[in-house]
């Protein structure tokens, strides 16, 4: 079973540079990189054999056919010709009926899929997707994510960068945050959200309050302007008391509520908060 790893970071944080170093496109200034134990310089053939890369920009030889382009990529990685496999890749990406079309005649979404087909043509074990869904319509995005999940089931490790945090939230098993060239944090998505995520408890009151009673100061509650709603923000690391004690205290004080709602903070909020702490 593979893994989907989302690399998040603001523009210019070094996401693409990091990927480019691992893939051998840019020389690193220092440090070592290994891919499945293979050093990317000393053992570059073994390391690169494992990697498929879909870069951010659409860069394809415009005058070659889809079929020739994908087979070229496979050859470049030293794999023997395998028309059946290439056909499967093209069918999976809904490009089979375009196999004889020249790349220049394809739509943007098709070109994006052709780039993915090229990256998959040599059966990589690690797939880098740099902003794969930028400028891709919703339907196609869904298809792409379905394909990424299938790859993971086949044991491929997928490392993706994205601006759409909802996407990382929906897809990723683990999340890494990079800022100013440094990995700030790597954690499982669920753990990250549990550890750094905030919860918000909203209580709709039966009768509006003019102000929050003194006795509740330790909860740091917020009262809506109309006095009809109390909001309690808490997280797992905070020293503030739990929800149960708040509710007990409210009952004791005779404050009644009509409805309760809770909200989890999104990965986006966590992300923004992290970067704010960094800065």
């Amino acid at each position: 079973m593979g893994e989907i790893f989302a690399l998040l970071g603001p523009n210019g944080a070094g996401k693409t540079t990091l990927i480019s170093i691992v893939c051998g496109i840019v020389n690193r200034s220092s440090g070592t990189v290994t891919v499945d134990g293979h050093d990317i310089t000393r053992d570059y053939r073994a390391a690169r054999n494992l990697i498929g890369l879909v870069p951010q920009e659409l860069t394809i030889d415009a005058f070659e056919s889809v079929w020739a382009t994908v087979n070229y990529s496979r050859g470049l990685f030293g794999k023997p010709a395998n028309p059946a496999f290439v056909e499967k890749v093209l069918r999976d990406l809904s490009l089979w009926d375009k196999k004889d079309a020249k790349a220049i005649t394809l739509s943007g979404g098709m070109k994006r899929r052709l780039m993915i087909a090229k990256a998959l043509s040599h059966e990589p074990r690690v797939l880098f997707l740099d902003e794969p869904t930028a400028g891709v319509d919703v339907e196609l995005r869904q298809d792409m994510w379905a394909m990424v999940r299938r790859l993971r089931e086949d044991g491929v490790t997928i490392i993706l960068t994205t601006h759409y945090i909802e996407e990382a939230e929906a897809m990723a098993d683990r999340v890494g945050v990079i800022n100013r060239g440094e990995i700030v944090l790597v954690d499982g998505k669920a753990e990250l959200m549990r550890k750094l995520g905030r919860k918000r408890l909203m209580l709709e009151l039966r009768a509006p309050l003019a102000s929050i009673p003194e006795t509740f100061s330790r909860y740091a509650l917020e009262l809506s302007p109309d006095g009809g709603q109390l909001t309690y923000t808490y997280d797992n690391q905070s020293e503030r008391p739990g929800v149960a004690s708040l509710i007990r205290d409210l009952e004791a004080a005779g404050i009644q509520f009509r409805d309760i709602d809770t909200q989890n903070s999104s990965l986006e909020e966590i992300f923004v908060n992290l970067l704010r702490q960094e800065a």
């Binding site: 893939c23 496109i25 053939r45 870069p55 860069t59 394809i60 030889d61 470049l76």
Partner: peptide, 17 residues
């Protein structure tokens, strides 16, 4: 040409000496 259009990335990332 591949440098110009950017498709050189593939050559550089391939296991090619």
């Amino acid at each position: 040409f591949p440098k110009f259009v950017g498709s050189i990335y593939e050559l550089l990332s391939a296991p090619v000496s």
